[in-house]
Design a protein around this nucleic acid. Structure first.
Length: 141
DNA sequence: AGCCATGCACCG
DNA sequence: CGGTGCATGGCT
């Protein structure tokens, strides 16, 4: 199944906030996304998987897909979320800024994705009030 | 649910 | 010793 998803980058995602955690959040609420990315076993504490991403120039990037789930394991755990980390170098190379979009699409190979960075769209000067700038993840195809 | 932030380990 | 990433806590 071919699919494409886009994630609008937040300031924290690209490391612009001073967080040394360049990495984006993957909502576990989205079933399509859960199927899109590797399956991580909740029975394991903080399981992770590495995915290969090819950018538009043919360069390969390895990203870490982690399921922080200590809430399900540790006594007073508070985490229960999926994240994509290890993106610092990629963002630096691409010069990603908050508001840009990162696109993921599947390839023939399992665990391999095609990615590209889409620049933030400038707000149309004649935008009627109430126009919503999409945030977070959304399915493109 | 999602984004922001921090203490510490590791490595050049 | 500064940058990077991990794991976790905090705030909205």
């Amino acid at each position: 199944m071919k699919a494409t998803f886009a994630k609008t980058l937040s300031a924290n995602d690209v490391g612009a906030t001073g967080s040394h955690q360049a990495g984006i959040l993957v909502p576990k609420a989205d079933k399509e996304l859960m199927a899109f990315f590797p399956v991580l076993d909740p029975a394991i504490l903080n399981p992770d998987a590495w995915i290969i991403c090819i950018d538009e120039f043919g360069d390969e990037w390895k990203f870490r897909y982690v399921y922080y789930n200590n809430r399900l394991h540790a006594e007073h755990g508070t985490r229960n979320e999926y994240r994509l980390t290890y993106l610092t170098k990629f963002f630096k190379r691409m010069g990603a800024k908050a508001g840009d979009s990162l696109l993921f699409s599947t390839t023939n190979e399992v665990g391999k994705y095609r990615i590209s960075l889409k620049r933030k769209e400038l707000p149309a000067e004649d935008s009627p009030p109430g126009v919503i700038v999409l945030q977070g993840w959304r399915r493109v195809h």
